[in-house]
């Protein structure tokens, strides 16, 4: 059984033929589209390493069936930087050492991008920590992650004010 679906992934419109309806969005991205930046840490929605944005919302892509996302607009970690210009969240993760091994980092970064867009946490470290707690970092770079989200939030607010 094959299914034809279309998706916009990081701005590119893709026509995909799914030869297996069991394929998750995570495995589709990694194995079929070839975007291996998104990571598989648990395959059951418990660690957050597979976090991507679907129509602007952060989700665990390991819990999403690819076939259920016909027509979706998906952003992965590969879609954040503009050429050599890092997204402010990416730059802040480097500056604040918000990672060690880097395996959870794509998920952390996508989660942070969405958290900032959600506008619920602002500059409050306690709310940032809560909002980032769906993403496990076994190296425990949590202090750096929280600082990175705060730094990126401030920078993005400044950029917004400047362009307003």
């Amino acid at each position: 059984m094959t299914l034809s679906i279309t998706m916009t992934v990081n701005g590119d419109r893709l026509a995909l033929t799914l030869d297996d309806p069991r394929t998750t969005l995570l495995d589709l991205l990694r194995d079929r589209v070839g975007l291996t930046g998104t990571k598989k840490g648990c395959d059951r929605g418990q660690c957050g390493a597979c976090t991507v944005l679907v129509d602007g919302r952060r989700i665990n892509s390991c819990l999403a069936l690819a076939a259920a996302h016909d027509g979706s607009d998906i952003t992965t970690v590969e879609g954040l930087a503009q050429g050599d210009d890092l997204h402010p969240v990416q730059a802040a993760f480097i500056a604040q050492d918000g990672f060690q091994c880097g395996y959870c980092t794509p998920g952390q970064i996508m989660s942070a991008v969405a958290l900032i867009a959600e506008g619920e946490a602002g500059d409050d470290p306690e709310r940032i920590r809560e909002g980032m707690s769906g993403n496990i970092c076994r190296c425990a770079a949590y202090a750096g992650i929280t600082d990175a989200v705060r730094e990126a939030t401030r920078r993005m607010q400044q950029d917004e004010r400047r362009s307003a």
Binding site: L80, L86, I94
Partner: peptide, 13 residues
């Protein structure tokens, strides 16, 4: 900062 930082934050590591 980490020399592998850009690779790790862009998903290319």
């Amino acid at each position: 900062t980490r020399r592998d930082g850009i690779a790790k934050v862009t998903g290319t590591a």
